[in-house]
Simulated scan of single mutants.
Amino acid sequence: MKVLVPVKRVIDYNVKARVKSDQSGVDLANVKMSMNPFCEIAVEEAVRQKEKGVATEVVAVSIGPIQAQETLRTALAMGADRAILIQTDQDPEPLAVAKLLAAIIGEESPDVVIMGKQAIDGDNNATGQMLAALLDWPQATFANSIELNAGDAKVGREVDGGIQTLDVTLPAIITADLRLNEPRYASLPNIMKAKKKPLDVKDAASLGVDTAPRLKVIKVTEPPKRGGGIKVESAADLVTNLKTAGVL
């Protein structure tokens, strides 16, 4: 069973994002970048499925600039077998990402795609669903448990009322939620080995996919600073203040 795992290069979650002075976007100059945390969870799950003997090959795919090679090498160090970089200097929108991934899936023919439910930079939570629609594949989003079999998968997914269990026929798209697993730290020997592994680099334009942007950024601003809190003497005072503030 071949598992394909898309991974994204994003600002490290420990770094405070800064807005460009012209408010055209987020300033990425001299900022630490790393693998999207939800993508890490997806890679970990794919590697665990391989360790169980269910998966036979794990292929990591990233879309972005040449620097995204480091993100792919992290996936290789975690246990992925191969890595593919779809090189582009654009910041593709979710639909464009889904189309590019669909093109790669057409070449690789994986049995299942496990991917993060969203990226922490755009927070769109749309690529997995769009990819399933383009491929006309079943999908199971927000997975917190995955049991892969020869022709199907049982996925426990997080919903408002608890855990919903879905049985999906493979091939399928599965998006990983936060509590699916705890990603491993790549060992130093594996990191060194990953640096020497070849990457398959493809130009996004060569895939014949329309990646033209359909959205226009008007302005990017930082969220307003949170005001200071106040102390109240009793529950009645709390209710009075909440009514004054229009919360109740």
Rank of each mutant, 00 (worst) to 15 (best):
88 T>N: 13
135 L>R: 09
84 I>V: 15
128 G>P: 08
125 N>W: 10
122 G>Y: 09
130 M>G: 05
132 A>L: 04
106 G>M: 10
99 K>E: 14
109 S>M: 09
123 D>K: 03
123 D>Y: 08
128 G>K: 04
120 I>M: 08
132 A>M: 10
88 T>I: 12
135 L>C: 05
133 A>K: 13
83 A>C: 01
122 G>N: 14
117 K>I: 10
91 D>A: 11
136 D>I: 12
125 N>G: 15
100 L>A: 07
88 T>P: 08
135 L>M: 15
105 I>L: 02
128 G>A: 03
96 A>H: 06
112 V>M: 03
124 N>F: 12
114 I>R: 01
127 T>N: 10
127 T>I: 06
113 V>I: 14
129 Q>P: 07
99 K>I: 08
127 T>L: 02
106 G>S: 08
84 I>D: 11
87 Q>G: 12
106 G>F: 06
92 P>N: 12
103 A>N: 05
101 L>M: 04
121 D>E: 13
86 I>V: 15
135 L>D: 01
122 G>F: 12
133 A>M: 13
118 Q>Y: 13
134 L>W: 11
131 L>R: 09
102 A>E: 14
132 A>P: 06
121 D>F: 11
85 L>E: 09
99 K>S: 08
109 S>A: 12
126 A>E: 14
96 A>M: 11
127 T>H: 00
125 N>T: 08
136 D>F: 07
83 A>I: 00
92 P>H: 11
84 I>A: 02
86 I>M: 02
98 A>E: 04
126 A>G: 01
113 V>S: 08
108 E>W: 03
128 G>Q: 03
106 G>R: 07
130 M>S: 04
130 M>F: 06
88 T>L: 03
96 A>R: 05
126 A>R: 12
100 L>I: 09
